[in-house]
Simulated assay, not measured.
Amino acid sequence: MRKYGSAALLLLVGAAVLRVSLFSELYLRYVQAGLRPYLIASGALLALLGLVRGTLTARAAREGADKADGRGQLEHAHAHAGAPRVAWLLALPAVALLCFPPPALGSYSAAREEAGRAEKFVGTFPALPARDPVELSLAEFGSRAAYDSGFSLRDRTVRLTGFVTRDDDGTWYVTRLRVACCAADATAVMAEVRGVRAPETDTWVTVTGTWFPRGRLGSAAAWPPVLEATYVRPITEPTDPYEER
């Protein structure tokens, strides 16, 4: 069976990649939506290579069986040759991805994000839609709160979506992770929430409220922005848990 090891590993990895990219939306926990075609192509290619490898190995075995019995001991030795058993440890990540895909990044990853924010250019932003509440990404809410000299958030009701994170002092935030390519380059964006009790950490929520100004525009004191909340509603984790950069 060991001689089929490389073929089995290729098939396993290919199946794992196809499982998260072709047959589900789980790939969105790890990479941007635009990379889906490349994942599908990679998974299909790995699975195809595994089938080809298995077919060639089986053919070689049949041809070897037809040879003279005098070479039996040599064939027996070749049958037991191959990669060491420890190589099968390479299959563990594929099995984990196939059977137990890890969750999206959460509060632990957000906590590792540096709190300091460099000052950015302060200027005016495009007008918001007239209807309240206005749905904003956390990145847009933070940018307008910290850098918009036109104060477009003033007297507006906004709705933010993210997961719950906390400080040691009990302050809580609605948080989202932003990715440019994949989960490996994720950075956190957040808004402090006041006025309502926080759900459990890592719970996904939508929070409705109004912006509470603080600090000078463009300064570190303006970050993170504050939302005076009037309503918080737990929700299920979105299919795509990240915001694009």
Rank of each mutant, 00 (worst) to 15 (best):
residue 1 M to T: 07
residue 2 R to A: 07
residue 3 K to D: 12
residue 7 A to W: 03
residue 8 A to M: 14
residue 9 L to Y: 09
residue 9 L to D: 06
residue 10 L to E: 05
residue 13 V to T: 12
residue 14 G to M: 05
residue 17 V to A: 07
residue 20 V to G: 08
residue 21 S to E: 09
residue 21 S to P: 11
residue 28 L to K: 11
residue 30 Y to D: 13
residue 30 Y to E: 11
residue 31 V to Q: 06
residue 34 G to I: 02
residue 35 L to P: 02
residue 36 R to W: 07
residue 39 L to A: 03
residue 41 A to L: 11
residue 41 A to G: 09
residue 43 G to T: 08
residue 44 A to R: 11
residue 44 A to S: 15
residue 50 G to D: 03
residue 52 V to D: 01
residue 53 R to S: 15
residue 56 L to A: 14
residue 59 R to V: 08
residue 60 A to G: 14
residue 61 A to S: 13
residue 63 E to Q: 15
residue 63 E to I: 02
residue 64 G to D: 15
residue 68 A to N: 10
residue 70 G to K: 05
residue 71 R to M: 12
residue 75 E to V: 05
residue 75 E to N: 11
residue 77 A to W: 14
residue 79 A to N: 12
residue 80 H to Q: 13
residue 83 A to D: 03
residue 84 P to W: 07
residue 86 V to F: 11
residue 87 A to L: 14
residue 88 W to C: 06
residue 93 P to G: 09
residue 94 A to P: 08
residue 95 V to E: 04
residue 101 P to V: 02
residue 101 P to Q: 07
residue 104 A to D: 04
residue 106 G to R: 01
residue 107 S to A: 15
residue 117 R to L: 11
residue 117 R to Q: 13
residue 118 A to Y: 05
residue 120 K to Q: 15
residue 127 A to G: 08
residue 129 P to I: 00
residue 129 P to H: 06
residue 130 A to P: 04
residue 130 A to Y: 01
residue 133 P to C: 01
residue 134 V to G: 02
residue 134 V to R: 00
residue 136 L to C: 09
residue 137 S to E: 08
residue 140 E to I: 10
residue 145 A to D: 05
residue 147 Y to E: 10
residue 148 D to V: 04
residue 149 S to I: 01
residue 149 S to T: 03
residue 153 L to F: 01
residue 153 L to V: 00
residue 154 R to M: 07
residue 154 R to V: 08
residue 156 R to K: 12
residue 157 T to M: 06
residue 158 V to D: 06
residue 158 V to R: 06
residue 159 R to C: 05
residue 162 G to D: 06
residue 163 F to S: 05
residue 163 F to M: 01
residue 166 R to A: 08
residue 171 T to G: 09
residue 172 W to G: 00
residue 172 W to I: 00
residue 177 L to R: 09
residue 178 R to Q: 12
residue 179 V to R: 09
residue 181 C to Y: 12
residue 185 D to P: 00
residue 187 T to M: 05
residue 187 T to L: 08
residue 191 A to W: 01
residue 193 V to A: 04
residue 193 V to D: 13
residue 195 G to L: 04
residue 197 R to N: 02
residue 202 D to S: 09
residue 204 W to D: 05
residue 205 V to D: 00
residue 206 T to E: 14
residue 207 V to L: 01
residue 207 V to G: 04
residue 210 T to S: 15
residue 212 F to C: 02
residue 212 F to P: 00
residue 216 R to D: 13
residue 216 R to A: 15
residue 219 S to A: 09
residue 222 A to H: 06
residue 222 A to L: 03
residue 226 V to Y: 02
residue 227 L to S: 08
residue 229 A to Q: 00
residue 231 Y to E: 15
residue 232 V to T: 12
residue 232 V to Q: 10
residue 234 P to H: 11
residue 236 T to Y: 03
residue 236 T to F: 03
residue 237 E to V: 04
residue 238 P to V: 00
residue 241 P to A: 02
residue 242 Y to M: 03
residue 245 R to N: 12
